[in-house]
Design a protein around this nucleic acid. Structure first.
Length: 502
RNA sequence: UCCCCGAUAGCUCAAUUGGUAGAGCGAGCGGCUGUUAACCGCUAGGUCGUAGGUUCGAGUCCUACUCGGGGAGCCA
């Protein structure tokens, strides 16, 4: 095995030199005397041009029959060539096939989500999945960089725990040597304890929620980063989180422009994401939801959907007409393929048309006091071109630890950050109740077992200070940045409602 | 837990009011020196999710079940 392989991303520094690449066949287009083989090596794509005259006949025949995802090394001269995938190509003089790949299940044509998830171990090699993975890497690096360079100390909170952060009922139970325990739902409670040691801390790891939510923004295992700060107020938390999110966007724009383009992300919209973000109170948000503005919003949206549906129906009609009169077989085939795409699109629009009045009703009939639902957040989010803070939710709808507002006992000093373009919540955070009596009353009112919370109450017994923090969902943030519809695409091996594929 | 939709070739999907199971891609063989999801010709590939029912006849209609998708609730 050669140990002097050149990576495709470094070809630009090796133009004119003889190099060896190691990778997998992304595409292979064999000709009679020339083979165009696009090689994938994990750092990029490179078209390798194999001319029959330049290698042995035996090797040429072997390469000619090489199928997708076969592994090999190829040696040749690196050239700059605008016609080539990636801008550089290799004039091949030698190659060594390591493992031919027969009947690779993932083809260049479309596949269903179920099939791709069952083949996730192979789907990771696909271009789109690879691009998302690269951006995820940047995102996570930027998250750590932001906190590390702003005076935060990393504290690793336990994954196995006996204490619940939010309401129970959405916990994965585990048998811990005969004792009941569960997988962590948040590191927050432990983090509050660490804040009283370091002042500014964060934890970053997987989080587990046994919610049976079949939506595009739920996973049962996801990654969350949670900062916690002592001596801060709600305004301070908002500033921290908007500077934080803006820094993430900057890092991704700087490092992953090509990947964002491949994925079709809205780069111009991302460029606008700079602090400060918009600020709304929960009460203001409810006013918007129940206003004429929202009624109009849904009406306009419905009209758009209907227009789209009509033009799709027209397209399908004309495609069918063309198909009947087409005399060439290849023309018919092409039309058939277009018909399939148009029908799939039509199906999606019809679902949107069906959901529109349901979501409109949920918004218009919204009652002050309830938590904002996913579709409500989507509306608020779609009305803005930057992230929106929604603050001061009703206390009854929120977790016991959130700090009661001093002017209005019915609300808490908390906030959600909604990403724009309709993606919805990516951050949830709050000031924490630092008053011993008030916290004790909340725990009792929820009928939690007081024994379990004595250590948490200790934080309010010994030198309690105003403090707060928030949690940012990595996959949701990534879905927003990349324009992915579903967050299951934003983690290598997604875990969804009571199903583990691989 | 509730509501809606779906299951046909390895994959993505067609099949008129119930009447002989079809395409593209992928796979195999052949052709082509500049291809970009290449193209052209040929070949193989099916217990129509499972179990019942209606019918002369069911992929198509009815019932139940299994699995999947979307949404609600809940949330990052």
């Amino acid at each position: 095995m050669p140990d002097n392989l050149t990576r495709i991303c470094n070809l630009k520094d090796n133009v004119g030199k003889i190099v060896t690449l190691g990778g997998w066949v992304y595409h292979c287009r064999p000709g009679g005397k020339v083979i165009f083989l696009v090689l994938r090596d994990g750092s990029g794509l490179c078209q390798c041009v194999i001319e029959k005259a330049n290698i042995t006949e035996e090797l040429f025949d072997q390469l000619k029959h090489l199928s997708t995802e076969s592994s090999l090394t190829v040696t040749g001269t690196a050239k700059k060539d605008a016609r080539s995938t990636g801008g550089y190509e290799l004039a091949v003089t030698d190659a060594k096939i390591l493992c031919p790949s027969k009947d690779y299940p993932i083809t260049p044509k479309s596949h269903g989500t179920d099939f791709l998830l069952k083949n996730r171990h192979l789907h990771l090699r696909s271009q789109k999945t690879w691009c998302i993975g690269r951006i995820r890497h940047t995102l996570i690096d930027a998250i750590r960089t932001f906190f590390n360079s702003n005076g935060f100390t990393l504290v690793d909170t336990p994954i196995l725990t006996g204490i619940a952060g939010e309401e129970a009922g959405s916990l994965f139970e585990v048998d811990y040597f005969g004792q009941p325990a569960h997988l962590t739902q948040t590191g927050q409670l432990h983090l509050e304890s660490a804040t009283m040691s370091f002042g500014k801390v964060y934890c970053f790891g997987p989080t587990f929620r046994a919610e049976k939510s079949k939506t595009r923004r739920h996973l049962t295992e996801f990654w969350m980063v949670e900062p916690e700060v002592a001596f801060i107020d709600l305004d301070g938390l908002l500033e921290l989180s908007e500077n934080f999110v803006a820094s993430l966007v900057t890092a991704v724009l700087k490092n992953n422009r090509a990947e964002l383009q491949t994925l079709g992300a809205d780069i111009e919209a991302l460029k606008k994401i700079t602090a400060p973000f918009y600020r709304l109170t929960y009460t203001e948000a409810v006013d918007i939801l129940t206003s004429k503005k929202t009624v109009d919003f849904f009406a306009t949206q419905l009209e758009d959907f209907k227009t789209q549906k009509q033009s799709l129906l027209k397209k399908i009609d004309s495609l069918q007409g063309e198909s009947e009169t087409a005399n060439k077989q290849w023309k018919k085939d092409k039309l058939a393929a277009e018909l399939i795409d148009a029908r799939a699109e039509l199906g999606e629009i019809e679902i949107k048309i069906e959901n529109n009045p349901k979501h409109a009703e949920l918004a218009v009939n919204f009652q002050w006091g309830k938590d904002l639902g996913g579709s409500n957040e989507t509306i608020i989010s779609m009305m803005h071109d930057k992230p929106v803070f929604v603050t001061h939710y009703p206390a009854a709808a929120k977790a016991f630890y959130m700090k009661q507002n001093l002017d209005n006992a019915d609300i808490v000093n908390n906030f959600d950050m909604l990403a724009p373009a309709g993606f919805g919540e990516i951050i949830g955070g709050s000031m924490r109740e630092d008053d011993y009596e008030k916290l004790l009353n909340k725990i009792n009112a929820q009928e939690y077992d007081l024994e379990n919370y004595q250590w948490y109450l200790d934080l309010r017994r010994y030198g309690s200070v105003p403090h707060g923090g928030f949690g940012l969902g990595v996959e949701r943030t990534l879905a927003w940045l990349t324009g992915e519809k579903h967050i299951r695409q934003c983690i290598a091996f997604p875990r969804m409602t009571d199903k583990i594929m691989i």
